[in-house]
């Protein structure tokens, strides 16, 4: 692999960008996501998550079992806003999204 190899297809993030995020102190998938947008594309990290964790594991010399999973949020699949909002005023969008608000203790 060379430095320009794309790792996150959806957001077009390459190996160099991920390695530089790691050098700036990133050590989880979510750290890298916040710095580079890697994992924020339409597939929501389904394709790049393992590739990135592999790179973290190699760069930081830690085993894959110590690199946690990305935080997964609702809606789990691309969903039209209309499908979430419904027609009623007491719409389900509030409850669906309310649940995905950060929990206490979560990093923001």
């Amino acid at each position: 692999m060379d430095e320009s190899t794309i790792i996150c297809k959806c957001e077009e993030i390459n190996l160099a960008e991920i390695e530089s995020a790691i050098q700036s102190g990133a050590h989880t998938f979510d750290d890298i996501k916040r710095i580079t947008r890697c994992g924020m594309g339409p597939c929501q990290a389904k394709i790049c998550s393992s590739l990135v964790r592999e790179i973290i594991s190699q760069s930081l010399e830690v085993s894959l079992s110590e690199i946690g999973l990305p935080r997964m949020r609702m809606p789990l699949k691309p969903t039209r806003i209309a499908a979430l909002a419904g027609k009623e005023t007491s719409s389900s969008v509030v409850s669906v999204f309310a649940e995905s608000a950060p929990k206490e203790g979560d990093e923001s």
């Binding site: 789990l76 969903t79 389900s92």
Partner: peptide
Amino acid sequence: HTMIGTYQDGRIGVTDGHRTIP
């Protein structure tokens, strides 16, 4: 129908693309 989330009361949210059904 796709399971896309849960409601706060524990019900499962399933969507057919047009609406979300608890």
